[in-house]
């Protein structure tokens, strides 16, 4: 299935873009998705703190992702 992944902050640098289309097997949780992303983009292994939202809502533990869902990756930022 195809997903749209939107990235903020340092996750943007890792993906090399604000937004990508990503192909992944059907019925995966957001944890599976992150494991997959770590294989495609190894720098995600370093980013130990990353908030994931699915369709504009903070992803709950084990929450599944469906086709055409919008996944947003939000690393913490500290600037003030």
């Amino acid at each position: 299935m195809k997903l749209t992944i939107i990235a903020y902050g340092i996750a943007r640098d890792i993906l090399g873009s604000n937004s990508i289309e990503y192909e992944i097997e059907d019925s995966v949780s957001h944890e599976n998705l992150l494991e997959n992303l770590k294989k495609t983009y190894p720098d995600f292994n370093k980013l130990t703190s990353l908030m994931i939202a699915i369709n504009s809502e903070y992803a709950k533990k084990g929450q599944m992702i469906s086709e055409n869902d919008e996944v947003v990756l939000i690393p913490p930022v500290s600037g003030g």
Partner: peptide
Amino acid sequence: DLFPSPPPPGLVPSCAEGGVIGVLP
């Protein structure tokens, strides 16, 4: 609840390291 643990040091730049556009704050 959003960010249970901090990122590893040095990975996420501060304004001094990564810059910030002046009007944003």
